[in-house]
Design a protein around this nucleic acid. Structure first.
Length: 268
DNA sequence: ATGCCTTGCTTAGCAAGA
């Protein structure tokens, strides 16, 4: 008889909900059907006073939130204990709520440091917003570098607003050098990987034209004109334990959907 | 295509997203 206790697998997901106020029923429904251990959200578009802690607690999730009025906002929802929450990037003054980090106590699986980011969009290469994007990416790189030193078991995930390469866009020719496709953004993505992080989605064979975001306009989803810009990067120490990574397109078919779909990674 | 949706803010069109 095998008496060795089986280590339960751990599921961590990311989802840009484009307003938690509008999408809360969908988040609750999705969690009921996909009871992941940790769900990281972006684009809450609400202040912390309006964060729906009670509704999430009712289905077993505690949350650490970092919101602001109208724009941005990030949160970590977890069924496992969270501690050592950090907001934004220390040393980088930023009016915008874009990063929340916390340590998840995964019990038999040990502790995992989570960095959840809503990366800057950048609007257009050469614009002020693009400059802000590149500066923000530089400071995020420094933060991840430091956090990896303190926490070798680390996951960096969220809405990166970067297509890592031409496989990650529906139109690599027509969209060449446009926002999310520039050499500079892709170099920043690669320099994050160079810290010892791995794109979990690419650790496995995947269907061609796999995307995580589709424009609301022009029947983007129906025509699968999308981008893969939502990512889960795992550190060297975690890479061997990753057994699956997938994009769940189902919520993009809900009535009044977010324009992003959740991405889920399985560890162990 | 300076367009197409969606959301928030405020209540009539903007700003911003990607």
């Amino acid at each position: 008889m095998n008496t060795t206790p089986t280590t339960p697998s751990l599921h961590i997901a990311t989802w840009n909900v484009n307003s938690l106020n509008v999408r809360l029923p969908q988040v609750l429904q999705w969690l009921a059907e996909n009871p992941v251990d940790v769900l990281c959200l972006q684009e809450l578009k609400l202040v912390d006073e309006k964060f729906p802690h009670a509704e999430l607690a009712a289905i077993g999730y505690a949350a650490q939130a970092f919101g602001q009025k109208t724009y941005n906002g990030v949160a970590i929802l977890s069924r496992l204990p969270l501690h050592d929450t950090m907001r934004n990037i220390p040393g980088f003054a930023d009016e915008q709520a874009r990063v929340i980090s916390a340590t998840v106590d995964a019990r038999t699986q040990g502790e995992i440091r989570i960095i959840n980011g809503y990366f800057v969009n950048g609007q257009e290469p050469g614009s002020d917003k693009f400059q802000y994007k590149m500066q923000w990416l530089e400071h995020l790189h420094a933060l991840v570098h430091e956090q990896l030193r303190l926490h070798p078991r680390l996951v960096l995930l969220g809405d990166f607003n970067i297509t890592p390469d031409d496989r990650d866009t529906w139109d690599p020719v027509g969209l060449k050098d446009t926002i999310h496709h520039t050499v500079e953004e892709r170099a920043a993505f690669q320099s994050l990987q160079a810290l010892g992080l791995h794109d979990a989605f690419r650790l496995f064979p995947q269907a061609e034209k796999s995307f995580s975001w589709w424009d609301y306009r022009m029947l983007g989803f129906q025509k699968n004109r999308g981008l893969r810009i939502d990512h889960i990067l795992v550190s060297n120490a975690l890479q061997a334990s990753v057994t699956q990574c997938s994009i769940d397109r189902a919520p993009r078919k809900y009535p009044k959907p977010s324009d992003h779909a959740p991405v889920i990674v399985t560890l162990g």
